[in-house]
Design a protein around this nucleic acid. Structure first.
Lengths: 136, 136
DNA sequence: GTAGATGCAAAGTATTTGCGACAAG
DNA sequence: CTTGTCGCAAATACTTTGCATCTAC
């Protein structure tokens, strides 16, 4: 069975080149939120000839096609993850850099309500929590 | 009476140079969230010899001193605003770029709760809503 | 066959830094 | 005085782009 991103490319009519297939595969198999450099490293192991320009072009294309989503957490580089049905936000451990994904329906609803209150329709949002582990 | 940022520099023991006073003044009087370029333009009107490097160095220093806060909204450049008692989040009009500040105590509390749930102490957070005006 | 994709290197942005001159406390 | 700051230009980090070549459909 094809991995999920390649599948989505077909559905969305995104042309599949060798390079895109590799990038799609790597992102599909990634459990984390790699930045372009990291993605480039992983991709290079499968095909050392892929250029970083192609990686940049591809993540941008995938993002515009609604296949990947881009995060700009604190500290510079953009990071990507596969976009799927289940929306979630992020809790970031500022010591270790570990990222925990979470969903909170109540917060989601309240956000809609805030937008509503000011006469806006919510089209997107960003919620990031930065924390330190409690000495448990 | 001195404007608020200059006051804070004194309280926090931040050395006040001519350039810093000007940057402090401009930020104190800004009602919006200027990026460094914009800030540099405003500052240059009061003293055309200030360099952009100084503006970068100063906003960084002010941020580290807890005087300014930095936002990285979608689309690149970092933007700054004065940090004061009243915390707030931002609702951004994706058409006009207008930024509305809001506070929602309930969301704040829920965020704490989420962090708690995963065993974390919340030290910072970022909540940005992106919306379009409803045809009112 | 043709429109679009790739690799490369060069160009863009945004931001930081080394260094000698200078100013604040 | 002495330490830290400034202006300048060069350096860095991340991302985009022009162009000739190549490839998916």
């Amino acid at each position: 069975m094809k991995h999920s991103i390649e599948q989505k490319c077909i559905e969305k009519g995104v042309k599949l080149t060798e390079q895109r297939k590799i990038i799609a595969k790597v992102m599909s198999e990634s459990e984390d939120h790699p930045d372009v450099d990291e993605l480039y490293k992983r991709v290079s192991k499968l095909d050392s000839k892929i250029s970083i320009a192609t990686v940049y072009r591809t993540v941008k294309l995938f993002e515009e096609s609604g296949i990947l989503t881009k995060h700009e957490f604190k500290g510079g580089k953009a990071r990507y993850e596969e976009l799927n049905e289940s929306h979630h936000d992020h809790l970031i451990d500022i010591k270790s850099g570990e990222i925990i994904e979470f969903v909170d329906e109540e917060i989601e609803k309240l956000q809609e309500k805030v937008a509503e209150k000011y006469g806006y329709k919510l089209v997107d949002h960003k919620l990031e929590l930065y924390g330190v582990k409690k000495n448990s």
